[in-house]
Design a protein around this nucleic acid. Structure first.
Lengths: 212, 212
DNA sequence: CAAAAACTGGACCATCAAGTCCAGTTTTCT
DNA sequence: AGAAAACTGGACTTGATGGTCCAGTTTTTG
């Protein structure tokens, strides 16, 4: 979906610099958290100077908001093929498997790039919180699409609420990532997602059961 | 359960001071996060001096570990009556209702005291991570007890795995709190817990159905 | 009743943080 | 071409921050 951030006038070089800053910051934040990332770190990692940081962003918070968008884009992009096929229990399970495998590959180190950001910044200024809400909503959107399609195709009962289901899956995902990061094991994440998918399955019709 | 932290020799006054420090730090951390809480803040809030902080704790991390224990104790204590009766679907639902109501009373501001701590510190030193694991396990323990009792009493099918169920509930709880804090609404938490309880219910026998 | 241990106060230090400022260069647009 | 706007470098300011040190008081204990 490429969450566009309105940046009025930028030359080619300017745009490149801005991108470099955001990308570098995103990496640092993913590893050390927002509070653990200083602007000096950002300068070093992006090969820029203070004045450039403050040329493109009004302050650190502003930069972190840009990072939130970028993390969301990255996440969605990385899950692209799977996220577009969440319109069946089989599709959900493929997504789950991919996700869990990816966490295991990363040795379950580091939580959700968006989740940790939210945990750190959600109690801060309202503007940032609003951005975080939109990021979560954007990420949940493919889930919502898929579930809505399932219901419309009669694979889920009419009383299934795609909105509630999608949100519940996202909570399971976030909680799973938090516990998995703490325990350094994908088990909590796997169990959380299994529960969530079972929950969806409990609304499945015989038509979907046949497919699954 | 009162997670005891081995503190060898302490006079009555010393113990009081130590307690005061931990309690004050816990409050500050709950409001501003670990990184957002300075030792000067702690000194002011606990009416102590630097040397006292370093007399009772080797460094900030050490103090934060003590805070993790204390947060866990507090949480468990606050939920005491409900946590002890999680041995039926009805008990689980009462607990859910109490929890959601409490969050609404707090206007859904502030995440889970333990969850945010974990999110912030889980990637730090292993000693701290170990403490966080134990804290989560301690908190999950009453859940595990209740679910095990339910299965032993034949209210859950024999193939129900209390361990997996308890962990899944905790992930739903953590994810729900994160999203609820971000959206400033108890809805995600409520949906997450409903899903988790439905999941437990899917393992219920007719005996439990009769009680519920 | 000492001596040892537990406890306390607060000055001090080195470091690093976000944010400011201004002088200079490059690109864009007419 | 030439002015305006976009862009860049880096020194500098101000204020925290975690952590150290040591001299002094209170409590415990043999």
């Amino acid at each position: 979906m490429t969450t566009a951030q309105h940046t009025p006038k930028l030359t080619a070089r300017g745009a490149a610099t801005r991108t470099r800053i955001v990308a570098a910051t995103a990496n640092l934040v993913r590893e050390h958290g927002a509070a653990g990332t200083s602007l000096d770190d950002v300068m070093a990692a992006s090969r820029t100077s203070k004045s450039q940081l403050y040329h493109y962003f009004t302050n650190k918070e502003d930069l972190l908001r840009a990072v939130a968008w970028q993390q969301t884009d990255r996440i969605v992009e990385a899950q692209r093929p799977e996220l577009d096929q969440l319109d069946s229990l089989a599709g959900l399970r493929r997504w789950r498997d991919k996700f869990v495998a990816a966490r295991d590959e990363a040795q379950n180190v580091g939580g959700c790039p968006l989740g940790s950001l939210a945990s750190e910044l959600a109690d801060g200024d309202p503007q940032t919180r609003t951005v975080l809400q939109k990021c979560f909503t954007a990420w949940t959107s493919p889930l919502l699409m898929g579930l809505t399609a399932m219901r419309d195709q009669g694979r889920l009962r009419p009383d299934a609420d795609p909105d509630a289901l999608a949100e519940a899956i996202m909570t399971a995902l976030q909680g799973g990532l938090l516990l998995s990061n703490t325990y350094r094991s994908s088990r909590p994440l796997a169990r959380a997602l299994d529960m969530a998918i079972d929950h969806v399955a409990s609304f499945a019709t015989s038509r979907e059961a046949a497919v699954a």
